[in-house]
């Protein structure tokens, strides 16, 4: 049984996608071309909710200087002032406007996330698909590499890497991308393996198409949803992990990001002075971003794997029947 990978705590990774299966009743399954998938996505409440949040965030990132003008690092008032009309989220332990920091810091946090997601996904595609496509010795070697990097705990490695390398924004992105790729690679490898044995791929290979064409034109489109899902997961990972590194003081503490706000909150003992506004908002923003991405991922899971869908078909009455007893219910005259 192809396992659904557990949702990794704290970080959102998509489940291993196999083809929709396990339909005891024997109906042929409709395929899921991209168009159909997109239509279903826009109809799904969770996706819409997640998507809205993301769009709002993109908006904030784009117009940050307009929404919260001024120098985020400037000292504007007394330290640790609670929220007021003038400073919507109060002031930090060093007298900076938390709201301005939050809005302007969104750029660093979210963009880092996006880049990390991109790097991890691209690397994952390259390694995963190569392993899945060629199989044999290539696959064995790459699989070992993948698994080794999956098993080595990420955080200590990240910490040491970030400590040794120069403190630039690029370092963080690079380092995170390099630790994030194995998860994607594994998923893509699994899917490539299963897609590869399909007839149309064999047909293309026999027909003499070049390897690249086969990979990109035949195999990749089928994995579009998985790649998209990995990308979203990678972005979520990037956002959370970046915050973690900044929190440890490993990032560039002279920039403003959600993570650095938290770093200063911890270092200025904001918690111990009751200044909840110094750490609550950035954490909520990070969570919101990660949550919306995960939500979309989770919904895509549900759409492509009908078994996981929360059972809404048949209405509430039927649901109660199924809960009460495992025996097939008798509902006369059900239309």
């Amino acid at each position: 049984m192809e396992a659904n990978e557990p949702r990794i705590p704290g970080v959102t990774a998509p489940s291993v996608k196999t083809r929709p299966d396990n339909n005891n009743i024997g109906l042929p399954h409709p395929k899921y071309p991209l168009r159909d998938l997109i239509r279903k996505l826009t109809q799904n409440k969770k996706v819409v909710a997640g998507g809205t949040i993301l769009v709002a965030m993109v908006f904030v990132v784009a117009f940050a200087p307009l929404i919260a003008p001024g120098d985020p690092m400037a000292f504007v008032a007394q330290a640790n002032q609670p929220p007021s009309a003038e400073h919507l989220l109060g002031t930090s332990g060093q007298g900076q406007d938390v709201f301005v920091q939050l809005i302007r810091g969104s750029r660093v946090s979210l963009l880092t996330g996006v880049f990390v997601g991109l790097i991890a996904t691209i690397l994952g595609i390259i390694v995963g698909m190569t392993a899945g496509y060629f199989g044999g010795a290539v696959d064995n070697i790459l699989s070992v590499v993948m698994n080794v990097f999956l098993v080595i705990p990420g955080l200590p490695l990240l910490v040491v890497l970030a400590a040794f390398l120069p403190r630039t924004p690029a370092t963080i992105v690079l380092v995170l991308g390099l630790t994030g790729w194995p998860g994607t690679a594994r998923v893509l490898r699994a899917q490539t393996l299963s897609v590869r044995t399909k007839e149309y791929v064999s047909a293309a290979i026999v027909g003499g198409e070049s390897i690249f064409r086969v990979i990109f034109a035949e195999i990749l489109p089928n994995m579009a949803s998985i790649v998209a899902s990995s990308l979203l997961g990678g972005i979520a990972f990037g956002i959370v992990a970046e915050a973690g590194l900044e929190f440890l003081g490993l990032g560039d503490t002279s920039r403003v990001s959600w993570g650095t706000i938290l770093y200063w909150a911890q270092n200025n003992a904001g918690l111990l002075t009751g200044a909840w506004w110094t750490f609550l908002p950035p954490g909520l923003c990070i969570a919101l971003a990660a949550f919306s991405l995960t939500l979309i991922n989770y919904s895509v899971d549900e759409i492509t794997n009908p078994a996981l869908r929360s059972q809404r078909s048949g209405g509430a009455i039927l649901r109660k029947l199924y809960l009460r007893s495992r025996a097939t219910p008798v509902v006369p005259n059900e239309k």
Binding site: P9, L288, F291
Partner: peptide, 21 residues
């Protein structure tokens, strides 16, 4: 599921800060 996803979206260290607080 939605509750767990939501809680799991928070960074560990932030939840720690919250609990501490």
């Amino acid at each position: 599921p939605p509750l767990m996803i939501f809680i799991g979206s928070f960074p560990y260290f932030w939840l720690a800060m919250l609990c501490l607080f």
